[in-house]
Design a protein around this nucleic acid. Structure first.
Lengths: 357, 357
DNA sequence: TTGTAAGCGTTATCAC
DNA sequence: GTGATAACGCTTACAA
């Protein structure tokens, strides 16, 4: 077992100083052709690679991005990670992943852990519990420490930072309008509780679209799922709720659901109680994941472009990190151009499949 | 913007030495009650947290695990990550994720990058390209550097390390036997090309089960999907292949597929060409993911227990890391008990749903 | 052209 | 009880 070789060892072996080795390896013109060659050959032979940790300590930057998400077993979030990882890698960064598991406490713990030198910046999506508590001090504290944050999807006005979101409102409007144009008269909404901002926005979009099309909103046609009871993992419960909802509203001919699970479940339940899709009921979901593609009938959805969100988030963060560097160099961190944060909106688009006519 | 406070700053502020601060914060009995109190109060006030990077450098261990997987947008892999993250966190470790994207080169690059001090050990699943090339030098090199590896799911005999696998062979046998007992006479297999070990093992299990039940294997009933052409992302292609397969074998009354995508696609295609599930054809898939649960009819599967695999892998790795520490302490790394590597087999189980009678 | 030394933030050893 | 010093691995300004 041969441990990793260090500059020190090379220096000793070749009987030169550590700094000579360091310089030679970075092709410094200070060092003679001869010694440079000798050192580089030796380094290559022993497969020398600088130690990242030492570099991080020295440079006071780690070249790694902390991703903090509520849940990884979720098509949307893993798509985002993939996007982040792609541009991060391309731009010379690594990613370290923390999961909040939708818990406020775990979000904080993870954040503090990573903020203590492990990462240069965060890309995150807020946990449900945090949204419910509306306690965002940890984000602001982190930013105050000089660690930039980019929030995506589940964002919040109370924190001043770059944000990448999908136009939930407009996406919902588009979806409902699509249903209207396809002839639906009684369009139901299946959504989450209001504290999830994306759920709230999509609900608003739904209402807006109804109004614009002169359809009266009917609170009976809105089903709010309380998933604080982990209903997402309890299919029976979810399906029972939806079944009840559909049965007590037999005139529903269109369903807009704020995520694909609700949409797919609605289709399943509808079929079970004898309603044909898309003939009797047309369905559109939000978020384009595996389920939508493979459901039968396959589901028409508002695509959320997770990967794109990830890519944009990463670019935003890295741009900011590297801008900081540049500033440092120029003015020793003079306070030029602070807090002009960017809110980037990713356009949604409707992917038509078999669940609409 | 207040930067993170360091020992040095506290020392200066309180007019004591750095080492006094360090000791006081770790409740050393060397330091007087008084100063300890004063220092701890100050540290708390300024929210002092030791810098992880500095600790890593000093301790020559990072307390982080590198995860290297082929793809993150995959229910199975994200389940594994969740499992790893859970025990890692509980045991005081972080995880850093690298994606090989099924590419040999990216696997190597990622590995070298992380191996240079960023992580204490790896948990990984081999990329398809690597399996095809059968070039495993980078794994062995890493292990030789003293960085332990735990492989899961896609493992290989050529590398000596801890492994966590599912009993693919037995799982497949169970699945096919289930079909036999449910009355199937002509059981088809939809599998991958042979270089993917799990595909190969599941295929062997299929053959074994047929033989044990005195059913003659028929090469016409085996469909090998070549997904090197990214067929997984090209649904049409996949479905066309399966459709052709089912049509030219009208006597098929059972299908065993080595993953859930193939299984769900088979169901979809079967329904399209007018065959009822499970009445005409019964289907069982391998890997229990979202698709299986939400497909209609929902899919009977051989569960792969991704989360459990992740948990076991993490425990195995951390156990080894901490055993190393203990050894170091005792004998300064004497060569006691080398290479007694563990191969842990996770039992599969069949989850019966609607696609079987 | 090469080497010395300081510093990144810690902890541990040893001296006072 | 407190502090100086070295070390982890590296870079870089400054000496030689």
């Amino acid at each position: 077992m041969k441990r990793k070789v260090t500059l020190k060892q090379i220096a000793k072996e070749l009987d030169v100083s550590i700094s000579t080795v360091s310089k030679a390896l970075s092709n410094s013109s200070e060092i003679s052709e001869d010694t440079t060659q000798k050192i580089q050959a030796f380094a290559k032979l022993y497969n020398y690679r600088p130690n990242n940790i030492a570099l991080s300590l020295k440079n006071r930057k780690t070249k790694t991005i902390g991703i903090l998400i509520p849940e990884i077993v979720h098509h949307f979030f893993s798509t985002v990670i993939r996007g982040i990882e792609r541009v991060a890698n391309r731009r010379g960064y690594n990613v370290i992943v923390g999961l909040s598991n939708e818990s406020f406490t775990k979000e904080i713990i993870n954040m503090e852990l990573l903020a203590n030198g492990s990462i240069d910046g965060f890309i995150l999506s807020i946990s449900k519990e945090t949204l419910m508590k509306q306690d965002y001090h940890h984000f602001n504290a982190t930013i105050n420490q000089g660690i930039p944050i980019v929030m995506f999807d589940r964002v919040v006005n109370e924190v001043d930072c770059d944000k990448v979101i999908v136009d939930d409102f407009k996406g919902a409007v588009k979806a409902v309008e699509k249903l209207v144009h396809k002839g639906c008269k009684n369009i139901a909404l299946i959504t989450t509780m209001d504290y999830v901002s994306v759920g709230r926005l999509r609900t608003q979009g739904y209402l807006e679209a109804l109004e614009e099309n002169k359809l009266a909103p009917d609170s009976n046609l809105i089903l709010k799922i309380d998933d604080s009871l982990d209903v997402e993992n309890n299919l029976d419960l979810l399906e029972t709720e939806i079944a009840q909802f559909l049965k007590s509203n037999p005139d529903i001919d269109g369903v807009f659901a704020v995520n694909e699970l609700y949409a797919v479940s609605a289709m399943k339940v509808a079929k079970k109680i004898g309603r044909q899709i898309p003939d009797d009921i047309q369905v559109i979901g939000f978020t384009d994941g595996v389920l939508s593609k493979h459901a039968s009938p396959s589901l028409t959805t508002v695509s959320q472009h997770g990967q794109k969100m990830g890519e944009q988030s990463a670019n935003l963060l890295i741009d900011r990190l590297e801008a900081e560097d540049a500033q440092m160099d120029q003015y020793l961190s003079s306070n030029t151009s602070k807090s002009d944060y960017i809110k980037m909106v990713i356009e949604t688009e409707i992917i038509e499949r078999e669940s609409t006519k």
